[in-house]
């Protein structure tokens, strides 16, 4: 197993509030790592420091040994990091296939072409990715009119377009029906295994977390309080204390 991402004591403060303090962890290829914690624990801040949306105040982020701390998101992406968002981010004025094609074009450095219509580029590759996420039939539809669950799948296909080594998924199942959630994450898990992609995801739904994660890290008030297998984390008294009031640990 190779270490894909190595996070070393990253820190971030907003106007005196220490949102993330000295968090370290790493992910291996093909591994599903869940990042959980109660609201305001610093999950999103942590996440945004990994893909370049936020620059850490201190600490290091390494991708395959290369220091990517503070690089712009688009540069991080070029190094092989795909991303999905809590609120789906797709291009509403394009069809499903075109959404994936844009990502493929960007990956191939072909965006500055002015002649051949974009739909003629990478159509087969886009369809293959869409087929992998189960969206092949809807390739021609406008993204603006899709059901939410389908948008999430499209986003996954977009995120896979640059053959990433690491997938960052922020609340990938938020807003979906329970059955859809499990299906989406099972699909993600299959793809990750198959292609040796490391996946880091945050998640509120503990059913999903415990069913799909290989390993879990727990944040509370900016600190990493637990790390380990689902069973170990579930048994961790500190984690239970954090979550007890919210009654979120079940299933």
């Amino acid at each position: 197993m190779t270490t894909i991402l190595d996070v070393e004591r990253i820190e971030k403060s907003f106007g005196g509030v220490r949102a993330v303090q000295g968090v370290s962890f790493s992910i291996e290829a093909g591994e599903m790592l869940a990042l959980i914690g109660p609201n305001g624990a610093g999950k999103s801040t942590c996440f945004n420091m990994l893909n370049g949306q936020l620059r850490p105040d201190a600490g290091r982020v390494r991708l395959l040994g290369q220091d990517i701390t503070g690089l712009a998101p688009r540069r991080v992406w070029r190094l092989g990091v795909g991303r999905t968002f809590q609120i789906t981010a797709t291009f509403g004025s394009m069809t499903v296939r075109e959404n994936v094609q844009v990502a493929l074009l960007s990956h191939a450095h072909r965006l500055l072409r002015f002649w051949r219509p974009a739909p003629e580029h990478f159509a087969d590759e886009a369809d293959a990715l869409l087929a992998r996420v189960g969206m092949a039939e809807q390739a021609e539809r406008a993204c603006g009119v899709l059901a939410y669950g389908d948008l999430k799948r499209v986003e996954l296909a977009i995120a896979l377009a640059n053959a990433p080594r690491l997938l960052l998924m922020d609340e990938p199942t938020a807003g979906m029906a329970p059955r859809e959630r499990v299906a989406l994450m099972a699909l993600t898990r299959d793809i990750a295994r198959e292609q040796g992609i490391a996946v880091l995801f945050t998640e509120h739904d503990m059913d999903v977390v415990f069913a799909q994660a290989d390993r879990i890290i727990v944040l509370d008030r900016g600190r990493l309080i637990a790390e380990g297998s689902p069973a170990a984390v579930r048994a961790n008294p500190e984690v239970q204390a954090v979550y007890l009031g919210a009654g979120l640990v079940h299933g």
Binding site: R74, A89, T90, F91, A103, H107
Partner: peptide, 10 residues
């Protein structure tokens, strides 16, 4: 359409 997504695909 979506500046965030555009940036996130390079």
């Amino acid at each position: 359409d979506n500046a965030l997504r555009a940036e996130a695909i390079g």
